[in-house]
């Protein structure tokens, strides 16, 4: 399936654009990756004694894989609500720059802020990555509707995956459970690497991985924030230096 040309009548209504967004779910390998990741989250929720409704509500209202995994594992391992909330808040900081960078792709001069609230909610790593790929192919005034369709499609896939994973969990061996959990870092690593086109992105990714174990030795409680800001700032420095030289 290819998206219609920018001047096609297929983009004449927001509903058609929503439909194209929904159908675009079938055009990305990340849908399979998400399905498997959320299969894992459903299984993890089952094994840590959360209800199916809880798992589905976390997907609907949190809508951030890493945050959901951190929430389930910390609560499941006996952390307090406050400790879990801090860990999740820190992991969710990356949503801020994602929202900041993705919303301008959809905005027109007349767009009201409230029209972007649902798109902001749907923003998570997969949508962020796919927006940069798909949105240049979508007329600007239809991008919000397109993103709503794409996001609703992805959420639906994940809700199904949660349910399947939850019911499979009872039958998964320890090794298969580990294999499903390993899918999360692998898929996030490679999908981020594939979309790192600029040197700054590559530096941020590599340094972010290398610096985390060092930052974790500080046990500051905000290790990911420390390594992220340091690695990201160095990456920006590299970008700036190359710009100045050019």
């Amino acid at each position: 399936m290819a998206l219609p040309p920018l001047d096609s009548p297929q983009w004449n209504s927001p509903w058609l654009a929503f439909g194209w967004g929904l159908r675009s779910v079938t055009q990305t390998i990340l849908t399979i990756v998400l399905f498997v990741t959320y299969l894992g989250i459903g299984a993890l929720a089952h094994d840590t004694h959360f209800s199916l409704l809880w798992a589905l509500a976390s997907t609907l209202f949190v809508w951030a894989g890493p945050a959901q995994i951190i929430l389930i594992t910390t609560l499941g391992s006996g952390a307090t609500i406050v400790q879990s909330a801090i860990a999740v808040t820190v992991s969710a900081i990356r949503l801020f720059p994602m929202v900041v960078s993705v919303l301008p792709l959809m905005r027109t001069p007349t767009t009201k802020r409230r029209e972007l609230v649902f798109a902001a909610h749907l923003t998570a790593v997969t949508l962020w990555v796919e927006c940069h790929r798909f949105l240049p192919l979508v007329p600007r005034e239809r991008r919000i509707a397109f993103v709503h369709g794409l996001g609703c499609g992805l959420v639906s896939v994940c809700l199904v995956a949660n349910t399947v994973g939850y019911f499979l969990a009872a039958n998964l061996t320890q090794t298969l459970g580990a294999a499903i959990l390993l899918l999360t870092p692998l898929s996030f690593l490679f999908s981020t690497a594939r979309n790192s086109r600029e040197v700054a992105d590559v530096v941020a990714l590599v340094l972010g991985i290398v610096l985390y174990p060092l930052a974790a030795k500080l046990s500051s409680g905000v290790d990911i924030l420390v390594s992220g800001v340091v690695a990201g700032t160095i990456a920006y420095g590299v970008h700036w230096w190359r710009e100045v030289r050019a």
């Binding site: 960078s101 870092p185 996030f188 981020t192 790192s196 972010g208 992220g228 690695a231 990456a235």
Partner: peptide
């Protein structure tokens, strides 16, 4: 964006 990428790298 660089910081966002690095924080996700940290989660990985």
């Amino acid at each position: 964006r660089a910081v966002a990428t690095a924080i996700l790298a940290g989660v990985i």
